[in-house]
Design a protein around this nucleic acid. Structure first.
Length: 524
RNA sequence: GGCGCCGUAGCCAAGUGGCUAAGGCAGCGGAUUGCAAAUCCGCCAUCGUCGGUUCGACUCCGACCGGCGCCUCCA
């Protein structure tokens, strides 16, 4: 039982890729046994699209794996609720910035909830931390790392010796924001910490007059307030590496004189598939022009559809499986075609879950989600070849996750497990006769599956029924009737009628599956 | 122009200096089925091109070709 005491825990070796060092590093935490993790969240001025969901899904899985492995994790995702874009959009929609932010935050939360992203511990809003932000800027001004200019405050890049270390840039080579602020800045690379308010704009009092925070400062101030001046993991999309994270490092490390985060993790960006669902790369043949193959980043400017619209066509689980089938640092090939493939792949899991439920009477979704420690113990409940297989498969899965959270390999092992369990059911003819011992083994195998799918954050809750309520009952009884009639036809070898029924249902997207013990139906 | 990533089967996508280069989708053959569906078994790649390093490279280096991202708001 000493194992349950964090101070005596032995933690697995985890390696993760650090953008700062451009290589994989062994994971160690600032405070033993505890992990502080900060992910840059959305600016809430428009409904979120698929791109906004990548980070949360991936980091939810990362948190799951760390918690599963014994760490105590605090995960922070910020909400940027004050910003130029919010001000502009609230004018267009003739509403207050606060109301707009609340509406879009609610949209964001709905989407996270649909995707089963459950691990976020706190979601600080920038407007709740103005005081801390002002103090942060004051500290920088006092240390002469920043200077006020006509109501604005700028970070002085020249005072930060290692500015650019995250992205290998030097201030001299950068063009900077330019425009109206250029004349007030000492260097083009200097960036805004505090922005003077124009008449009518939302503003807060400060030593430099009324204004609002610049883009980067909130993350520095809020991460410090919640996680401390040096925490473990800072994450975000690859598009945030520069300038956002570079500037966060500059601010925080100039003020605190310690590393801001030990590990900087960045996820790949969504790519909209080009023609024929292709991603790009080398030309395939003379007929393919590069333009036809081009994949491009999905973003607000390319008119990505709101996530909620996507959810009307695709179940959250399908989207999640697609996201996890690619390594998090790679670009993700996204579109209707890949989503369709993901949906077909997903069915293999759900058919097995249904099969298990038919045999054992238990829903897969009620099975216990084990942690790593309990999973280690549970492996000993298998015997012989099955034990060998289960143990090897589980190790393959865990090795992949320990190696920079390689969910692509982890998912692949799951497909192997599906085949293995189906084979077990087939070879023992469990559909025809079962013994207690067989069912016990089957349940242990399914518990292993459960342990691993929950680690990824997959199949947490039963799929929402397409037809619910009274309509569902009506449909159910109609289907029972139709199946009964077809069954009678089959018994009298009237296959023409039986096939007519099945084909007609097929055209209505209802699929029948005949089994020894009856006929199942499902909506495709 | 500067910084960085990538190019693996029809499509998607892992991976390794040398045993059989994961897995998914699609396809083909077989078992099973009244026929299907599902399930199981089997088949399906020499890793953009050209050089170099090496006993040996798809994996390391170089050049070239092609794609993508960042340098401006962006998850």
């Amino acid at each position: 039982m000493a194992e349950s005491n964090p101070s005596t825990h032995s933690f697995p070796n985890i390696e993760l890729y650090n953008t700062l060092s451009h290589q994989k590093e062994q994971f160690t935490t600032v405070v033993p046994g505890k992990v502080g993790m900060y992910l840059c969240g959305p600016t809430v001025y428009k409904p979120s699209h698929i791109g906004h969901m990548v980070g949360p899904v991936i980091f939810d899985t990362i948190k799951r794996h760390l918690v599963y492995s014994g760490w105590e994790v605090t995960w922070v995702v910020n909400i940027t609720d004050v910003d130029d874009k919010l001000i502009a959009e609230s004018k267009v929609r003739n509403m207050s910035m606060t109301a707009l932010a609340e509406e879009m935050t609610a949209d964001y939360l709905d989407n996270l909830s649909a995707l089963g992203v459950q691990g976020i511990d706190t979601m600080p809003k920038a407007t709740d931390h103005i005081e801390g932000i002002v103090k942060f800027i004051e500290g920088l001004v006092q240390k002469d790392c920043a200077y006020p200019a006509d109501g604005d405050v700028y970070f002085d890049v020249a005072k930060d010796e290692d500015y650019g270390k995250l992205t290998n840039r030097s201030p001299e080579k950068m063009q900077g924001e330019g425009g109206a602020t250029a004349s007030r800045k000492r260097s083009a690379a200097d960036f805004t910490l505090w922005k003077k308010a124009k008449p009518g704009e939302p503003s807060w009092e400060s030593p430099w007059g009324p204004g609002r925070p610049g883009w980067h400062i909130e993350c520095s101030a809020m991460s410090e307030a919640i996680l401390g001046s040096h925490f473990d993991i800072h994450g975000g999309g690859l598009d945030l590496v520069f300038p956002h994270h570079e500037n966060e490092i500059a601010q925080s490390e100039s003020l605190h004189e310690c590393p801001m985060a030990t590990y900087w993790m960045h996820n790949g960006l969504m790519q909209a598939a080009g023609v024929a669902g292709k991603v790009g790369g080398r030309p395939r043949d003379g007929s393919d022009t590069p333009d036809d193959l081009a994949a491009t980043k999905i973003s607000k400017s390319t008119g990505a559809e709101p996530f909620k619209e996507l959810l009307t066509r695709h179940r959250p689980e399908v989207i999640k499986l697609l996201l996890l089938s690619t390594h998090y640092r790679s670009p993700i090939h996204f579109g209707e075609e890949p989503l369709g493939e993901s949906a077909r792949a997903l069915e293999a899991f759900e058919r097995l879950f249904n099969r298990y439920e038919r045999l054992c009477g238990n829903s897969y979704y009620t099975l216990t989600e084990r942690n790593r420690h309990d999973g280690n113990i549970a492996i000993s409940k298998f015997h012989g070849d099955i034990k060998e297989y289960a143990s090897a498969l589980r190790n393959r899965f865990l090795d992949a996750m320990d190696d920079d959270f390689n969910t692509a390999i982890a998912v692949a092992t799951l497909f192997d497990l599906i085949r293995y369990i189906n084979k077990f059911i087939d070879s023992e003819s469990l559909e025809k006769k079962t013994t207690d011992s067989d069912l016990e083994t089957l349940t242990h195998l399914m518990l292993l599956m459960r342990e691993l799918t929950s680690n990824l954050g997959l199949f947490l809750t039963p799929p929402v029924q397409v037809a619910a309520g009274t309509d569902g009952k009506l449909l159910e009884s109609l289907m029972q009737l139709i199946i009964e009639l077809r069954s009678r036809a089959r018994k009298t070898k009237d296959f023409a009628t039986a096939d007519l029924i099945r084909d007609s249902l097929n055209e209505a997207d209802i699929q029948l599956e005949d089994r020894a013990d009856g006929t199942d139906w499902s909506i495709t």
